[in-house]
Design a binder for these strands. Structure first.
Lengths: 140, 140
DNA sequence: TGTAAAAAGGATAAAAACATCCTTTATTGA
DNA sequence: TCAATAAAGGATGTTTTTATCCTTTTTACA
C-alpha cells in the first residue's frame, strides 16, 4: 500500500503532531521514538520540510515541528509528497491507456473504491489524528 | 497498491480467462498481448501454476489455460499468491505490534476500509470478470 | 526413436527502494 | 568571534524488485 518511506513519514508527522506546541524534535530523537533508521528518516523529513508540510530550524535547540498551518494538512498531502499521486490516480493494473473511455477490467470497482479512500485520506487532518492519539494513547 | 508482478499476474489470468475453453496460450503470446516482458511474465505464470491458480501443459501445443476450477478462483487468491497477504492484513503503518489491543492511529479506519476491499476482492470471480471483459470489450 | 516445442528451474544483470556516511550551511550561546 | 549543534545536501553502499538468459524436463509428432 504505502512505501516504507511513506510509512516512516506519516508516523514522524504524527509524532510531531503529538508534541506540545513550541517543542521541537531532532532527527535522532524521532528516529529513536519510532524505531527507524535515523539517516533514512532524515531524508524523508527533509523532503516533507521542503514541501512545506513540516517545519524545521537549524542550529542548537533546533529540530522539526509542526506549525499551526502544518497541523491542518491531511494524510493525502503527506502521502502524495512521498509516494506521489499514483495510489489514488494511476490505473490499478498499471495500464497507461486506462481511462473512463477505455477502462480496464477493474476500472469501475477501483474507482468507486478509491473515491472512498481519497475522501478518507483528505479528511484525516493531522491535528485531529494527534488528538485521538493523545486521548487513546495510540502507538506510533 | 499492487507490485508490478501482481499487476502482470492479474492481467495474465484475465487474458487466459477470456480465451475460448480448450485454447491454450504460450508465454510469448501472452506477453505480446499484454505488452510486458516475456521472461519476467514466465516467472509469474510459473508461480501461479505452482499454486494451482492457473494450469499448464508442456511440450508442443502446450501453454497456459484456466481449468473450470481455476476460473472459479477470485482476485484475492491471485494477489495473495504474488504479493502475499500483507495488503489485507499487515498494519498500514508497518508497526509490528499493531493490533486491536494496541492499535496504530490509522488502525480503525484502515480496518474498516480493508474489510470492504477484502470483500470486493474475494467476490471478484475470474470467470465473472472474463464475462464483462468480453461483453464490454475491456482492455488488458 | 529422434527432434522440436514449450514450460520449469536456476543463475545472472539492471533498476529502484532502502539505508548510511560525510560535508556544508544556518543558528545559538559563550 | 568561535565552538558546538542540528538540518540540508551530496555521494555512496546495500537490499529488493524487476528483468534477462541459459539449461533441463516434459510432451507431441514425424
Amino acid at each position: 500500500m504505502f512505501s516504507k518511506s511513506c510509512k516512516y513519514g506519516i508516523r514522524a508527522v504524527l509524532f510531531l503532531a503529538s508534541l506540545e506546541t513550541g517543542i521541537r524534535a531532532g532527527v535522532k530523537e524521532i528516529a529513536t521514538e519510532l524505531n527507524v533508521p535515523a539517516p533514512f528518516l532524515a531524508k524523508i523529513l527533509q523532503q516533507l520540510a521542503k514541501a512545506g508540510l513540516i517545519s524545521s530550524v537549524k542550529g542548537p535547540g533546533g529540530g522539526f515541528y509542526l506549525s499551526p498551518e502544518n497541523a491542518d494538512s491531511n494524510l493525502s498531502e503527506i502521502i502524495n509528497c512521498i509516494d506521489g499521486p499514483d495510489l489514488l490516480h494511476a490505473c490499478v493494473l498499471g495500464l497507461p491507456a486506462c481511462s473512463h473511455k477505455h477502462p480496464c477490467p477493474l476500472h469501475v470497482q477501483a474507482n468507486a473504491f478509491r473515491q472512498g479512500l481519497k475522501f478518507q485520506l483528505e479528511h484525516q487532518i493531522i491535528k485531529d489524528l494527534a488528538l485521538s492519539i493523545k486521548k487513546e494513547h495510540l502507538n506510533l
